[in-house]
Design a binder for these strands. Structure first.
Lengths: 100, 100
DNA sequence: TCTATAACTCTAGTATAGGAGACTTTTATG
DNA sequence: CATAAAAGTCTCCTATACTAGAGTTATAGA
């Protein structure tokens, strides 16, 4: 049988496009070993919406995004752009790469 | 004449609802002294969309959100939930409260 | 290579976002 | 208090998100 294959969390936590967010969410789901269909049903969104989020489609609503992120264990932070580089440095060591 | 009144940046940078994001974006715009209408036109979204974002409406798309955030100088970060409290502590001192 | 199954794609219907413009409300300031 | 201007609201229209279900493709493991 085909198993759920873990993907790495984005090395740089700075969120500059929906693609980065999709990668983070996919990483959280796959490392938890949950299938797309099961995750969608548990969280309460359609399979298609979850697929679109993981693919980084820009049209998905922030409501669905936060719903899925919280459901799969992904946290977001917001800061003024003037502090971006400081924040990036302070967070960069948090991402632990745990590929298979 | 009525001037653009600065609002504070959210004290806690953890993004758990669209309302927090709206507050951050409104803070960035008002502290830059830019009117809703001018900001919307410059960034390239409708006035209504910017109003909805600042009001924290959950339906706005992630594409528009990132477009406006980048246009107004607001940065987002994404990390695994297991690191949330560490990240919150590391970022909490970054938010400088500069109310009028 | 065979096969079970995870991932992905497609379609159709409904709901809602997004934009443009006009209008109303609120509030600094004279 | 008066008023100019920023903020917020409303309506109509088009585009697109969202869902459900069925079908197709890709791949891990026997």
């Amino acid at each position: 049988m085909k198993r759920v294959v873990p993907t790495p969390f984005p090395a740089d936590p700075y969120l500059d496009s929906p693609v980065v967010l999709g990668a983070a969410i996919r990483s959280a789901r796959t490392q938890a070993g949950i299938r797309l269909e099961d995750a969608a049903m548990t969280i309460g969104v359609s399979l298609q919406t979850l697929v679109d989020i993981e693919a980084g489609k820009p049209g998905v609503s922030i409501g669905k995004i936060l719903q899925v992120a919280q459901g799969l264990g992904v946290s977001l932070f917001v800061i003024p752009q003037s502090q971006r580089e400081i924040a990036r440095r302070r967070l960069s060591d948090l991402i632990v790469d745990n590929r298979p």
